[in-house]
Design a protein around this nucleic acid. Structure first.
Lengths: 184, 184
DNA sequence: CCGGAGAACTTAACATGTTAAGCAAATTTC
DNA sequence: GAAATTTGCTTAACATGTTAAGTTCTCCGG
């Protein structure tokens, strides 16, 4: 978020802005261009990508998350809820709600494991599979277009970097989990 | 949540998995490795980053979005709601709600423009400014740590690529806005 | 066995994402 | 210059994100 990397701040008055900004920047913390922080960059990039897919999914009555779930289910025969949450990258509560709805729409099937009654086993239904097959072509076409526009090589490179970023931070322990932070 | 995932092991009969997966993959569409799609990569990367900031923000009673708004407000004297939405990358309705809450907490001030009664002008309050100043140090430290772990050079490179991706897709018109999709 | 600790979800509660309406003020059109 | 249109928000409604509790069911030590 706050991403300032170079608060060194060029003092030079911002040439042609509506002068209020110059005033504000002068008397306030010269934090770095907020919009260039890593979180914002990632957010905007992802939105730019998802913006391409949402209309198509919407036309088929699916949200992004529902699609992720169905999509993940096509790769397995059955999967436990916790595993599915990990794969589809959804928090338990969200998944719980979505599965309830998808089941009501007969897009998935669910049953409890016989070995452990706490666990639920989920699988896609034939109706769900048909839906996936109906959406997939458009989805693939969009993905191909994105790849073409950005460049396959660069895309692969970007994904490598994203993976590296993930791994870099995986080990980074999260600060002040519950305290009120030393100062202030 | 989420994290490494290693389901579906290509076509090769997955040596040690519970064999159901292999079966599923064999009889179903061999779609792209779901977890390696660009949207998922971006989502996981962003989550890995935000995971570092949320606890600190939470300790100060702020959500990620509220922080974005206050953060954006420190860069200007006043700003119109629509402009703020653009800068903080929030949709109008979300912003509308959040501003209502932030105003109730006296973290921001709002008034209508005299020239155009439809427009609202927002600015951060002294209380809001104090809050920002209280959070900023921790936030900056986390950002610095992330930069250190991933590498300043690579970080800059990553952000360049993200910006490029954004620009690549900016011109890409969104398909089938409202139709039911030719077929497929 | 039995009771407590832990695991696997599910519910609850509140905040935001997302699309569609609603509304009042400003602008355009005829 | 009044009606039609557009603009700048705000509401509404529904889905998901996020954290805390609650509910069953397992498992484990005594």
């Amino acid at each position: 978020m706050g991403g300032p990397l170079k608060m060194s701040g060029k003092k030079s008055p911002n040439g042609s802005r509506s002068d209020q900004e110059g005033t504000a920047e002068a008397r306030r913390a010269p934090m770095r261009e907020f919009s260039r922080s890593l979180p914002m960059s990632l957010l905007r990039a992802r939105e730019a990508v998802m913006r391409q897919f949402r209309p198509s999914l919407r036309n088929h009555g699916l949200t992004e998350q529902q699609w992720r779930i169905l999509r993940a289910l096509t790769a397995v025969d059955t999967i436990e809820v916790t595993e599915l949450a990990r794969v589809a990258f959804l928090l338990g509560p969200s998944l719980s709600r979505i599965l309830r709805d998808l089941e009501a729409r007969d897009l998935i099937e669910r049953r409890t494991a016989k070995a452990d009654l706490r666990r639920g086993e989920v699988s896609i239904s034939s109706k769900g599979l048909k839906l996936i097959e109906a959406v997939a072509p458009t989805s693939e076409a969009i993905y191909a277009e994105i790849t073409h526009r950005f460049g396959a090589r660069k895309l692969a490179e970007l994904q490598d970097m994203l993976g590296e970023l993930e791994r870099s931070l995986a080990a980074m322990e999260v600060a002040g989990e519950g305290e009120a932070e030393a100062d202030e």
